[in-house]
Design a protein around this nucleic acid. Structure first.
Length: 497
RNA sequence: GCAUCUUUAGCUCAGCUGGCAGAGCAACUGACUCUUAAUCAGUGGGUCCGGGGUUCGAAUCCCCGAAGAUGUACCA
């Protein structure tokens, strides 16, 4: 039977329902309670014998002649319906017989316990709210020793992503991930709001893109007849707001990067960035550490997480160490003390490829990425980044080679990036021009010179700390999911089936 | 981008060295007033991911392509 034949049968049922004078898609519904309300004190509900009305999706049907059972589910829970012909009447029972798993219905009745002890609704009336014409995948479940065993689970990973509504409908544990995601983001907001931060929105469509090293998406505005870029970072507009006098701002929003996709990269992803005037890198460490520990404690309620095959403790002490120090620990070379020539020779020895125009700082970063980063499992603030790969960060006081910047590494991956923000307009211009030079050498991910941003800096921007956190990856960690697609409702897929 | 693996009924899957395309659930028909993976009896349902090739014969072997997963590279 082809799918069309399935649908054909359902359409025939639709016609029968209409023939009974029933509108299968009525406007009004009259729910008085949600399912969870009835589970608060079941015996009291049963004793009270009050008639209530529920609305939700019929998710299972067990008909046996003149009696039938169904399971009704709303977003608060699931309850069994007891529908007997003698109690709801012949006509209403005809309608019940035409109902399928997948339909939305309204059930009116009184809570009671069945002979086998299951808390249910003894229906006096059912109403159709929406007739389903495409059968849902048949997933059955059984509860054994308090554990739910699911049969014929809807588990095809591609279908789950492409038809996420079915995944959410049929797999409660995936629904839970997105509930947690929402709670995490809500808690991030309240954490920052409580500390005097103001949430803002800045443009997604930008005449120039900046704030990160990445290739952008390009689009076109017809009326202005100009190309625009989808933002790759929030940074440069948030800094303009600090110039404008706001002292603590943050934004949670989508960034877009026209690059490869894999387990930890989606072309559009959610970023949190915050900026705080008169703070600095140390302040950002405290903020980031405090926030993530707060989320672990208050949203998830635990410290230990299994992520990418590693056991991570978020509630322990977080190490703070310099990049060069960490590299030295691993390969035993004092990279800051070595000459650029020696470092290049070292990379050759290790068969590491260096990008065009790489100088000492970049070489140290390459050594770090190859030998150290993936070995940092417990939360570690990697500080003292080379200045040349940190064009928006202030130089470290007393060390011209280094920038006052950290990245937070957990389970071998980056979770946050922060600086004491560069506010010297002349230095900033030089650094962006150096980036432009790299661009000319073929690095198409180097920053572009944003004159409007530089002009804003010339008016004066207070010293400040800023940080960015990849929200999707944080949700991955906190919900223990190894693929970014599991925490993005509609992940990017190639057009296919 | 490269490598490996996967793709068979609505869902979950089996299909051996090439020989009539299968199961469970779902659907349909019938029985059934306390079931709950309801049960019992019966019925129908296929572009075997797409295209080409080898062969008397291809879901199965070969080639090209598509989508997905994983790894790797690039990349936050």
């Amino acid at each position: 039977m082809s799918e069309n034949q399935f649908i054909k049968l359902r359409k025939e049922k639709l016609a029968k329902i209409r023939a009974l004078g029933i509108d299968p898609y009525p406007v009004e519904s009259g729910r008085t309670h949600k399912v969870a309300d009835l589970f608060e004190d079941r015996q009291t509900w049963v004793d009270r014998a009050e008639s209530i009305t529920l609305a939700g999706r019929l998710v299972a049907m067990r008909r046996q002649g003149k009696l039938g059972f169904g399971n009704l589910e709303d977003d608060s829970g699931k309850i069994q319906l007891y529908v007997s012909k003698s109690e709801i009447g012949e006509e209403n029972y005809e309608l019940f017989k035409l109902c399928d798993a997948g339909d939305f219905i309204e059930a009116t009745g009184i809570p009671f316990f069945t002979n086998s002890g299951e808390y249910s609704i003894r229906c006096s009336k059912i109403r159709l709210l929406c007739k389903n014409i495409r059968p849902l995948p048949a997933v059955k479940e059984r509860v054994e020793n308090g554990k739910t065993i699911r049969y014929d689970e809807f588990s095809d990973i591609e279908l789950r992503y492409r038809k996420r509504y079915l995944d959410l409908l049929l797999n409660p544990e995936h629904r839970k991930v997105f509930k947690l995601r929402s709670q995490i983001i809500r808690e991030i907001r309240s954490y920052l709001n409580d500390r005097g931060y103001m949430e803002v929105e800045t443009p997604i469509l930008q005449p120039l893109y900046g704030g990160a090293n990445a290739r952008p998406f390009i689009t076109h505005h017809n009326t202005l007849d100009v190309d625009l870029y989808l933002r790759i970072a929030l940074e440069l507009y948030l800094k303009r707001l600090i110039v404008g006098g706001f002292e603590r701002v943050y934004e949670i929003g989508k960034n877009f990067r026209n690059e490869g996709m894999d387990r930890t990269h989606n072309p559009e992803f959610t970023m949190l960035e915050s900026y705080e005037a008169y703070s600095d890198l140390r302040g950002m460490m405290d903020l980031v550490e405090g926030m993530i520990k707060h989320l672990a404690k208050n949203v998830i309620g635990k410290g230990e997480y299994i992520y990418q095959g590693h056991k991570v403790n978020l509630l322990g002490e977080w190490r703070r160490a310099g990049m060069a120090e960490l590299v030295q620990e691993k390969i035993g070379v004092d990279v800051l003390g070595e000459s650029e020539e020696n470092l290049i020779a070292l990379c050759k020895e290790y068969e590491l490829e260096l990008p065009v125009g790489a100088a000492k700082g970049k070489i140290i970063a390459v050594l770090f990425e190859n030998f150290v980063e993936h070995t940092l499992i417990q939360p570690t603030f990697v500080c003292d980044f080379p200045k040349e790969i940190s064009p928006l960060a202030k130089a470290k006081p007393g060390d011209p080679l280094l920038a006052d910047r950290f990245e937070l590494i957990i389970a071998g991956g980056e979770f946050a990036n922060a600086f004491s923000e560069l506010n010297d307009p002349l230095d900033q211009r030089e650094r962006l021009e150096a980036q432009a030079a790299l661009r000319d050498l073929g690095d198409d991910e180097a920053n572009v010179v944003d004159e409007d941003f530089l002009e804003a800096l010339e008016y004066g921007m207070p010293p400040m700390g800023g940080q960015g956190i990849g929200v999707d990856r944080l949700v991955m960690l906190l919900t223990e999911n190894d693929s970014i697609k599991e925490v993005i409702l509609f992940p990017q897929m190639k057009p296919g089936i």
